[in-house]
Design a protein around this nucleic acid. Structure first.
Lengths: 124, 124
DNA sequence: CTTTCGCATTCCCATATAGGAATATAATCG
DNA sequence: CGATTATATTCCTATATGGGAATGCGAAAG
C-alpha cells in the first residue's frame, strides 16, 4: 500500500518540496494569484494549480475568486500539527545545545583556572 | 513522476504516520531493539525493520549491533530542517495569538473604563 | 458573440512507495 | 552441529502520487 493521501495529511502534503516552495511564496500572508506563483517559482501552471489544490484540501491555503482569477492565501494555522510534533524533539537538541554551552563555559573557567595555576607556578 | 525518495528527504520520511510513531517510541533517547518497537506499536516486525531502515538512511535514527540484536537510537538533530521550516510559520500564528491577547486586554481596559464612566454618571 | 485570459481538470504514464508473506542471515543456545 | 531467536531482505502487488500535454471552462474584453 502506498502512503496515506496527501489530501488528508498535512505532513504528507508538505512532504513535496515544490509544495513547500509554494507555501513559502505565500509567506507574506497576502492573497496571491496562481499566475504570480507560476511566475515566481517558474513552475508550469497546471502543476501549481494541482499543488495549490492539495494544499487547499488539507487547509494550508484558502482560496477566493476575483473575476477570472483565484486568490490563494496562506492559512498557517494548519501547519500547527507539524510544529507541535517536531517541537517535542526540538527540546532535545536545545537541551543538548545548552549542555554543550555549559560545558564550553565550564571548560573556559577551567582554562582560566589552569592559566592562573601556571602563572602562579611561573611566579613561584 | 512520484515524489522524491523517502530515503533522501526528512520531510518525506516523517510523512508516514507509522514512522512518526516509531520516532515517538524512541523519544526517550535510549537505545531500543526492533522487538521492543514491534511489541509497543503492534506493527509487524518486517514493517518496523523497513521503517527503521528508512529513518536510518535519512539519519533520524542510528543503529548499533549488540549480539543478534540491533539497537536503534533517536538522532533528533536530523529533524531540525523540519523544525526550522515550520518555525517560520509558527511566528505567524504566535503573532496572531499575541495580537488577540492584546486586543482582549485592551477591551478589558475599555470595559473597566466604561464601568468607571457609568459609575461617575450614576454618581453625577 | 468571438476571442482571450486565468486556471482547473483530465489523461496518460513512470515510479516510489507500504504492506504481507516468505525467506535469508546472523548470533546464541543446547 | 542443529535449533532458536532477532532482524533484515526479497518478492509481489495495489495504489497514490507528480509531471507533461492537451483540454475544459468561466469571466472579461473587443
Amino acid at each position: 500500500m502506498p502512503r496515506a493521501a496527501t489530501t488528508t495529511d498535512v505532513f504528507n502534503a508538505i512532504a513535496e518540496p515544490r509544495r513547500r516552495e509554494i507555501v513559502d511564496a505565500l509567506l507574506d500572508g497576502r492573497a496571491h494569484t496562481v499566475g504570480e506563483v507560476v511566475e515566481r517559482l517558474r513552475i508550469p501552471q497546471p502543476s501549481v494549480s494541482k499543488h495549490l489544490g492539495v494544499l487547499r484540501k488539507v487547509g494550508v491555503v484558502s482560496v477566493s475568486r476575483s473575476g477570472r482569477r483565484r486568490l490563494y492565501r496562506l492559512n498557517a494555522d494548519e501547519l500547527k500539527p507539524v510544529h507541535d510534533w517536531v517541537q517535542t524533539y526540538a527540546r532535545l537538541w536545545e537541551h543538548q545545545a545548552s549542555r554543550i554551552k555549559e560545558q564550553a563555559e565550564r571548560k573556559a573557567r577551567e582554562r582560566s583556572m589552569h592559566k592562573r595555576e601556571r602563572s602562579e607556578q611561573e611566579e613561584g
